[in-house]
Amino acid sequence: MDVSDLRKNAKLKIDGHPYVVTEFQFVKPGKGQGLYKCKIKNMITGSTMDRTWRSGEKLEAADVETKKMQFLFRTPDAFTFMDKETYEQLEVPEAVVGQDSDFLLDSMDVEVLIYERRAVGITLPSHLVMEITECEPGVKGDTATNVTKGAKIETGLEVQVPLFIKQGDNIKIDTRTRSYVERVNK
């Protein structure tokens, strides 16, 4: 692709990695080269950087897409998801899922990032509601302090929760910070 095709949300392949343009600004000094000033984000690692391209430079478009998929089951070294539109199944290696596996429950919807026909990342919903399966008994009235205790959610992950949370409660968790947000009535 030509630099003049650069736009916000354009997907580029740079040094073998897929990037998305998150900010885009075009400037051009009189009869000089156009400057395409971009902020780009590595779609796998999430790291961002600034890059400026000039008129006449060539770029490689990244063959990348995100698919809505449903988690089906886990095998020893992979997780299997299903495309919700085509019902095709896709194995995502354990290394790609990484710590996100701590939140995966059967039938959960996630976004899978496909780069050159390989799954390279998954994105969980930013917030999930999970049931507390194991914790010490709740302490009444103590809702104002920052004191917390460990509690296990239904995936087996342990999170820090306020003292008043009890077994069987449903809590909202921010999957990006992996932390408790609030108690919810399910």
Partner: peptide, 13 residues
Amino acid sequence: WTELFTTWSDEHL
């Protein structure tokens, strides 16, 4: 020279 002018117009002018 076009490169020079572009860089100068962007960074110095």
